[in-house]
């Protein structure tokens, strides 16, 4: 079984982001970039399925400009077999990404597509569901457990009220949540090996998909900051303040 894992390169989650002074976006120049943490979990899940003999090949795909190759190389070092970069300098939005991935699926014929439930930059939480819709496949979002059984996959989903278990016919799209696994650290010898693994670059135009952005960003600004309040010395003072000043208890 072939598994396709879609990954996005985002500003590293340790970096405190800076909003550009002209309010056109968030500064990405000279900022540390890395794989979206949720996509890393998706990749780890795929690699484990391969290690347990269920998956035959793990292909990793990303969309964007050439520097993304470094993130794809890390994915290969983690354990993916080969990588595909869909090259474009157009701002990629979830619907366009889903359409490009649909075209990749048509070429590669995977039985399973894994992606993170959301990217930590735009927090859209859309791409997996959109891809499943375009492919007319079943979707298992926010997966905290994935069990493959013959031609079905059982997905435990994290929902607001607890957990939901569903079964999907294969092929299917699954988006991964935090508690599915803890991604492995990349070992040095694997970084060397990854240099020899195939990484194909394909121009987005070749996939014949309209990826013109349909959402325009008018402005990006800082949120209103909460003012720092006061320090209280003890429980007495806290209770008094909550009762008489804040009037919340």
């Amino acid at each position: 079984m072939k598994i396709l894992v879609a990954i996005k390169q985002v500003i590293d989650h340790h970096v405190a982001i800076q909003v550009k002074l002209d309010n056109t976006g968030v500064e990405t120049n000279n900022v540390k970039m890395s794989i979206n943490p949720f996509d890393e979990i998706a990749l780890e899940a795929a690699i484990r399925l391969q290690e347990s003999g269920i998956a035959s090949e793990v292909i990793v795909v990303s969309i964007g400009e050439k520097p993304i190759q470094t993130t794809l190389r890390s994915a290969l070092a983690m354990g993916a077999d080969r990588a595909l970069l869909i090259q474009t300098d157009v701002e990629t939005q979830p619907l366009a990404v889903a359409k490009l991935l649909q075209a990749v699926v048509a070429q590669e014929n995977p039985q399973l597509v894994l992606l993170g439930k959301q990217a930590i930059d735009d927090d859209s939480h859309q791409t997996g569901q959109m891809l499943a819709a375009l492919l007319n496949w079943g979707q298992g979002t926010n997966a905290s457990q994935i069990i493959l059984k013959d031609d079905e996959v059982q997905v435990t989903r994290e929902i607001d009220t607890g957990l939901e278990i569903i079964s999907l016919s294969l092929p299917a799209v699954i988006t991964t949540d935090l508690r599915l696994n803890n991604p492995r650290y990349i070992k040095l010898p694997n970084i060397m090996k990854a240099k020899k693994k195939p990484l194909t670059i394909l121009a987005a135009e070749e996939l014949d998909v309209d990826i013109t952005p349909r959402l325009q960003t008018c402005k990006v600004e800082l949120p209103l900051r909460r003012k720092t309040g006061i320090k209280v010395e003890n429980i007495n003072e806290l209770i008094t303040k909550l009762q008489t000043e804040a009037k919340v208890i």
Binding site: Q126, T127, Q129, A132, A133, Q139, N142, D160
Partner: peptide, 23 residues
């Protein structure tokens, strides 16, 4: 924008070939 809405709305948007604005 609950786990219910987040699950179904992007599927609806893609079937309509329109973008979604989340949250």
């Amino acid at each position: 924008a609950s786990s219910f809405g987040k699950n179904i709305m992007p599927r609806i948007a893609a079937l309509l070939d329109v973008v979604q604005v989340s949250d």
